[in-house]
Amino acid sequence: MPDISVGAQVFDLTFHPTESIVYVGLLTGEVKAFGYDEQGQHDQRFTLKPSKRSCRGLTVDERGDRIWSVGKGKSLCTIDTRTAQITNTQLAAHDAPINRVRYISQHFLATGDDDGTVKLWDPRTPAEIRAYNHHFDFISDFLWLPDKKHLVVTSGDGTLSVLDVRSGKPAPFAQSEDQEDELLSATAIKGGQKVVVGTQMGTLSIFNRKSGWGDCVDRVPGHPHSIDALCTLPSSYPSSHSTILTGSSDGLIRVVQLLPTKLLGIVADHGDFPVERVVVDRAGEGRWVGSVGHEDVLKLTDLKDIFEDEDEGGVGEGDSEHVGSEDEGPSITAPGPVEEEKNDECSDSDEPEPEDPKSKKRKKKQAKDPLAKKKEKKGRNQIVTDPSFFSGL
């Protein structure tokens, strides 16, 4: 699909949960809605300006009837998507510019600001339900875990916290130790049992809920720049339980499989613009992934074209580790596994085992940083890969 020009820098986007409509929040304070179809055609549905200051965050309810916008103006605005009208504006909802907003359920809405304050709201009432002040730097992302009614909060202060929305106490259910890095994004894998967090230094930190929230259990370095956005693949793909899309400030959206860890390819390229948000339509179960950066366009990439190849002779999921070897033809743009904490560099035996020359060549090739951006020129949003590679996903 061609890029959708929106007229100003995009800060956030959200999709209608059941219809082919996408909403974007702009630097100008405007909220715009666009419709799109499977043939790549799009049209503008409405334009509203809830605030004169920038719109930093958007969220939509489970039916798509309302969206909420927040931003530098510190207000919380409600928009009726059916009438394209602003139905409510909560002025001075925070004392600092609001950075993120997340719809949780019919009676809960969460907002987080630049000073680290998180507030829970009931959309039916004008005042907040509770305010949390345990973070001291900007709130970067929210992740909802419905099984325990827990809201995971990431912050620039280097900690992750968990809020139990059922509790009446203005204190977190749990908070991690200082991770010594800004935490910028979060998503869940393994059926929600593990939480992946993107950091400023380009490391993916993995928290295991069964092990508690005190510290991460794994770290996966390798991204050359910060990981500002994360999301999971639709559940229709066999590997969705452990595969994520990462949006980095080097402009690339990567497909990364975790546990075991390997880079599977590059979905989209924003050029020199950092990727700020990555979202899959239809409540995460659709075919289009929307991404935005520091540019005045919304990029929609068709996951179906990338992952659902019709070649029945393609490489299956179990054979993916062999892709990229010299005798198997073309490989993805950056072959080889994602570099982990390098604990595997020490062999189990002190005596080296004999290896054939081909094996040595393959190991040398995999030692390159697979997540680094290649210097070779390629077309915009082009993926250099054997089309059959993703057929097993």
Rank of each mutant, 00 (worst) to 15 (best):
K358D: 11
P274C: 11
D269G: 04
T243G: 04
P352S: 12
V338A: 12
G251A: 10
V267G: 05
S359P: 00
V267E: 01
V289P: 01
V255N: 00
E328S: 05
L264G: 00
V297K: 13
V297T: 13
L245K: 01
C346I: 14
S248E: 03
E317I: 13
E351N: 06
E285A: 11
E345W: 02
E339I: 11
P354D: 13
D250W: 04
D250C: 11
P335Y: 06
D344Y: 10
L258E: 07
D350C: 03
E355A: 12
I253T: 09
P260H: 15
Y237E: 04
V267H: 03
D302P: 00
I266R: 01
P260A: 15
E321C: 09
V278N: 01
D250N: 15
P274I: 05
Q257G: 06
T301P: 02
V315M: 12
T301M: 05
S359D: 15
D350V: 04
G293C: 03
G314Q: 10
G313R: 04
K262E: 06
V323Y: 06
K262C: 09
A283F: 13
E312I: 02
G247F: 01
D348E: 09
V289W: 02
L264S: 02
A283T: 07
E353R: 06
F307V: 00
E276W: 14
E353L: 09
E276Y: 12
Q257K: 14
G313P: 00
N343C: 07
K360V: 11
T261P: 01
T243E: 02
G318D: 15
I266D: 03
V256H: 01
S249Y: 03
G251L: 05
V255W: 03
D250V: 08
C346P: 00
E339R: 08
P330V: 09
G314L: 11
E276A: 10
V267T: 04
V267P: 02
V338T: 05
V292G: 03
Q257D: 05
K342H: 07
K342D: 14
F273Q: 12
E308R: 05
G286K: 10
E353F: 08
F307A: 00
V280C: 06
G251D: 08
V279Y: 07
D281I: 02
A334I: 00
E276M: 12
K358C: 08
V297R: 11
P234H: 11
P357N: 06
S236R: 12
V255I: 10
E308L: 06
G314E: 11
L259W: 05
L259E: 12
F273L: 12
S249G: 08
L303R: 01
P238A: 15
L259T: 10
T261W: 03
E276R: 14
L303K: 00
I266H: 01
V275G: 00
H270V: 03
G324H: 06
Y237T: 07
F273W: 14
S291C: 10
L258F: 07
S236Y: 14
R277S: 01
H294A: 08
E341K: 07
V278W: 08
G336F: 02
E339N: 09
E345R: 03
D344E: 13
P354K: 04
L252H: 06
D272M: 09
L298C: 05
G324Q: 06
G313M: 03
D311W: 15
D350Y: 02
T333C: 10
S347R: 14
H241L: 11
C346F: 13
H241W: 14
D356M: 12
E310Q: 13
L245G: 01
G284T: 11
H294V: 05
